[in-house]
């Protein structure tokens, strides 16, 4: 078994929002890395439901390469959002 001093150090961490991040250094005792793209698995997050009692709207879209995008506005009849590359991706995106 690998001893503690042989384990690799976290040299830097860019996730400033993590409680264990101080000036880009990880101060957790140890982290776990896993998942489909080797993410830090020491913590997980869950959101609270919130917002207004109606469906949200697409205010703007920066993906000008999407067939539904015209002058940075979405003209799809509706969009679906869900996990893809990230936790919340526009699943209606379609490249031109």
């Amino acid at each position: 078994m690998t001893s503690l001093q042989d384990m690799p150090q976290v040299q830097d961490c860019a996730v400033d929002s993590c409680s264990y991040n101080a000036e880009h250094s990880c101060h957790a005792g140890a982290i776990t890395v896993g998942g489909d793209h080797a993410h830090c698995g020491t913590f997980v997050e869950i959101s609270f439901r919130g917002g207004l009692d109606r469906n949200g709207l697409v205010g703007a879209c920066h993906r000008s390469d999407c067939v539904h995008n015209d002058k940075l506005e979405c003209h799809a009849s509706g969009v679906r959002v869900g996990p893809s590359t990230d936790a919340a991706d526009c699943l209606t995106y379609e490249p031109r």
Partner: peptide, 18 residues
């Protein structure tokens, strides 16, 4: 109030099941 469909890794890059 916790949203069972919103589980994710801490960096927000990957969904996890709740």
């Amino acid at each position: 109030a916790l949203d069972d469909d919103s589980g994710r890794c801490a960096s927000g890059h990957s969904a996890v099941r709740v």
